[in-house]
């Protein structure tokens, strides 16, 4: 074998090996991509309904002067008992006084009711982070595809967010009574 043909053979071998490795890598990437649920579609479950006749707020509030004084509400909304850091907060910390149908963040930025989770996330940062990744809260649908997720307010009443106790389903039959 001449020097020249040796060189040619070597080049060909190197070329094919490189091509094979690249091919394998590509395949692996493809599999990984297929597995990844990153691009999965996430659909919010319809926001829970407001109490009847309560929204839009502007309907009544547009004609009322804003009273900034912290107080117990007696004429309206008296069914709302705030149990959510109530010592430090009240209505206008979350509800906007300037634009009645909106909420607002601590910095004043307006947030619609559809995005109320942003408001929750101001204090509950780690929870918001977990929720965005599907780890806090409930998801249904497909683990590798379309999922439905719930908003904070589906499970937590924003005025009284602690999850309410439930009646448990019946305990299992005691072993000695299984027939």
């Amino acid at each position: 074998m001449t020097k020249k043909s040796k060189f040619i053979y070597l080049t060909i071998i190197i070329f094919f090996t490189a091509a094979a490795i690249a091919g394998l890598k590509h395949k692996r990437k493809k599999i990984l991509r297929k597995r990844s649920s990153k691009k999965s579609i996430e659909i919010p479950v319809k926001a829970p309904p407001f109490s009847e006749g309560i929204y839009p707020c502007s309907e009544c509030h547009d004609d009322l002067e804003v009273n900034y004084k912290r107080r117990k509400l007696v004429d309206e909304h008296d069914n709302i008992v705030l149990k959510h850091d109530e010592k430090n907060r009240w209505c206008l910390d979350c509800h906007s006084a300037a634009k009645r149908n909106w909420l607002h963040l601590a910095g004043g930025k307006l947030v619609s009711f559809k995005e109320s989770y942003k408001l929750c996330g101001q204090c509950h940062g780690p929870k918001l982070r977990d929720w965005k990744r599907g780890v806090h809260g409930k998801r249904t649908g497909y683990w590798n595809g379309k999922k439905k997720y719930l908003l904070c307010v589906h499970c937590h009443n924003p005025h009284d967010p602690k999850f309410k106790p439930l009646k448990p389903l019946p305990p299992p039959v005691r072993q000695e009574n299984i027939k």
């Binding site: 597995r35 990153k38 599907g134 998801r139 683990w143 499970c155």
Partner: peptide, 17 residues
């Protein structure tokens, strides 16, 4: 699960829950 305590997914997918 009403409280969302249960999580499921693919252990080989680095993006999974």
């Amino acid at each position: 699960c009403p409280v969302g305590a249960r999580k499921f997914g693919n252990l080989l997918d680095p993006e999974s829950e």
